[in-house]
Amino acid sequence: MSPLESVDERLQQAMKLVLLATVPGLLVLFWLYGWGVLINLILASVAALAVEAAVLQLRKRPLQPTLIDGSALVSATLLTVALPPYCPWWLTVSAAAFALSGKHVYGGVGKNPFNPAMLGFAFVLVAFPQQMTLWPSSHGMDLLGGLQQVFGFSLSQTPDAWVQATALDSLRINKSLTMDELFAGNPAFGHFGGRGVEWVNLAFLAGGAFLLQRRVFSWHAPVGMLASLFIISLLCWNGSGSDSHGSPLFHLLTGATMLGAFFIVTEPVSGAKSPGARLLFGAGTGLLTYLIRTWGGYPDGVAFAVLLMNLCVPALERFVASRQEHVAP
């Protein structure tokens, strides 16, 4: 077996494990939102594979092994988790197309400086902000209703009660209610974080623990992100007042925290390479996530935090290398 074939085989095996690790989170999302999750997954996967094949043809590159290495499906799956269920079909397709195109602009697999899934997500978040806020309430629609909603041929207008603000949205615009009142009266809040989203985060935590156990990635980036987010939210936490930004547990179990910690910042190409740089990369992502959630223009912030830290990877690697040279005997 040649070295190139060995690398391709290791990549395929890693992508298979990552896809397997997303299954618990996808199942909880399906339980929570219904068929929209599956529809998004199919649309994103087909679009990602189609764009991957088209770009490879334009670049006059062989379709194999790139098309079957699983990287496009991983990007599509992560986009599925991040996008609102039942969003318009063209939104999902646009996100997947931009994600895969953004990867190939820099040379394809192994050369992309930005996380492809977060690149696609950030694109549609900036370009179509209204559609990106339409998150359904729990247990949304049956399959037929979901298809009608996604493809825009619903025979009746969607009821207003079908859509609700997320917990992060509600906290961001809150001016008068205490945290206790939000948890008691706002349907978007659960026991510790967003209703249902708590279980989604725990499912992705379980998937991440599986990947750690299989040594798909090291602990440095996930621990750096979660520890940083916990510490900054603890330092800035002012209790249950109406001006509260949420407890550390709230931030850990709401939004895309665990997805970001175990499936995004661990991406080996766009992330840092050395252990020390990975730790700093994760810590910077956690800090930026909190800053964007609390004072930025978007309720979650994981995607933009990751993309900003992608820009810092070369500086982080140089900083860690210089420190190691300084302390070397």
Rank of each mutant, 00 (worst) to 15 (best):
D8L: 06
V7T: 10
V306M: 11
I42C: 00
V37H: 02
I173Y: 01
C312N: 01
L73T: 06
V197W: 14
V150S: 09
F183H: 09
R172P: 02
T66P: 09
P275E: 10
F128L: 04
D300H: 01
V109Q: 12
K175T: 14
A76N: 02
E317P: 03
F217I: 03
V223T: 14
M309T: 10
T66Y: 15
D243Y: 06
K60Q: 15
W295S: 15
H220G: 00
V327H: 12
F217M: 04
S6G: 09
P275D: 10
H326N: 10
G140Q: 15
M258E: 09
A82C: 10
P62C: 08
L212E: 04
Q324T: 08
K60M: 14
S242K: 13
F262Y: 15
A184P: 00
V81R: 05
L144K: 06
P314Q: 05
I173T: 02
A95F: 05
S101E: 04
L119G: 06
A127G: 08
H191I: 01
Y290L: 10
G107E: 05
V126G: 01
L56N: 05
V269T: 14
A305Q: 12
L311K: 00
A261M: 06
I42N: 02
N310W: 12
R195W: 06
A82T: 13
L288P: 06
A44L: 14
P65C: 14
A184Y: 07
P248M: 10
P113I: 07
V23Y: 01
Q149T: 13
M141S: 03
I42M: 08
L182F: 13
A127Q: 11
M258Q: 12
L56F: 04
D160Y: 08
E52L: 08
G108E: 12
L229E: 04
H220S: 03
N310L: 00
N115G: 12
N174A: 07
L212C: 06
L253T: 05
G297L: 13
F230A: 10
L259H: 10
L202W: 04
S2W: 11
L308T: 05
A167I: 01
N310E: 10
S322Q: 00
S154Y: 00
M15Q: 14
A44T: 15
V109S: 04
